[in-house]
């Protein structure tokens, strides 16, 4: 708690210092209108995900999640890792939790697959650096959103993200998206244009309709995958995620950076 209040204090001081420069005509507009709240301001509620690493060891579970996400968001299939678009995918335990790895750890633990996605951080560095507010932390539910109309493709957010959770569209993704016999893509979720950055949005478009994120729903439908991914709101004391977080041993990625991830892992 102490570190959190210090962070808030630093933020307010920095804000005040910046506020002093709000004299210029260009700046005045931004200073007075208070356009969007951005940076790690307080949120009214916060969606969070808990991933059960044991249950998600089953490749069928993970594959179902990835496929569901690809279909729900019309994600192009790009094999080349240099250009691949990733929302939720596999990484090895040693790369996901580099601070937890030591020499005595057996190889199968080091190389165990872990599902990774955007952490929808409490204090997201990507939001802090974005020069156009194309990415911001939504106040009402804590989702780190992307506005594809606003993004100028400077890729500063990708340099700032400590989790590698953001992907840039190096080329027009449309020709590489799955299509049915009629040439239609799998969902009405807008495809992206080249030159913008994208990432997991916690299925904001599905939450809006009262649905669970596509990956969570898909995991629950795989035999043995029930509860591999749990999703809920931290502001709701009775939510499944709160129950798990208060009763089980969970960790998040790279805690020392102070970003406050909202994707938790049951060890």
């Amino acid at each position: 708690m102490e570190s959190k209040s210090r962070r808030t204090f630093l933020k307010e001081t920095a804000g005040a210092a910046l506020g002093l420069s709000c004299g210029g005509s260009v700046l005045t507009a931004a200073c007075t209108s208070g356009e969007d709240s951005h940076g790690g301001g307080p949120v009214e509620s916060q969606w969070a995900m808990v991933i059960d690493m044991e249950k998600s060891q089953d490749p069928a579970v993970r594959e179902a999640c990835y496929e569901a996400c690809i279909q729900a968001h019309n994600i192009p299939r790009i094999e080349d890792p240099e250009e691949r678009i990733r929302w939720i995918w596999d990484e090895e335990y040693q790369d996901v939790f580099p601070d937890q790895v030591h020499d005595q750890l057996p190889d199968d633990v080091k190389h165990a697959p872990v599902m990774v996605l955007c952490n929808h951080c409490m204090n997201p560095p990507c939001v802090r650096v974005c020069p156009t507010q194309a990415t911001w932390k939504r106040e009402e539910d804590g989702i780190v959103m992307m506005d594809m109309h606003r993004c100028i493709g400077c890729r500063y957010c990708m340099a700032a993200c400590p989790y590698g959770s953001r992907s840039f569209n190096w080329r027009d993704p449309r020709p590489l998206i799955d299509k049915d016999a009629q040439g239609n893509v799998a969902s009405d979720f807008p495809t992206r244009t080249r030159g913008v950055v994208e990432k997991c949005n916690f299925c904001a478009e599905r939450l809006r309709e009262g649905l669970q994120p596509a990956c969570v729903e898909a995991a629950n439908q795989v035999p043995g995958g029930e509860g591999a991914l749990m999703f809920g709101n931290l502001a709701d004391p009775g939510s499944e995620v709160n129950q798990v977080l208060s009763s089980q041993r969970t960790i998040t990625r790279r805690v020392a950076l102070g970003t406050g991830p909202n994707v938790f892992y049951i060890v």
């Binding site: 040439g183 239609n184 893509v185 799998a186 807008p190 495809t191 992206r192 244009t193």
Partner: peptide, 14 residues
Amino acid sequence: PTCWECHTTPGGGV
């Protein structure tokens, strides 16, 4: 307009 570079018609028409 650049709308259709991303948005689809109902049913995923691109």
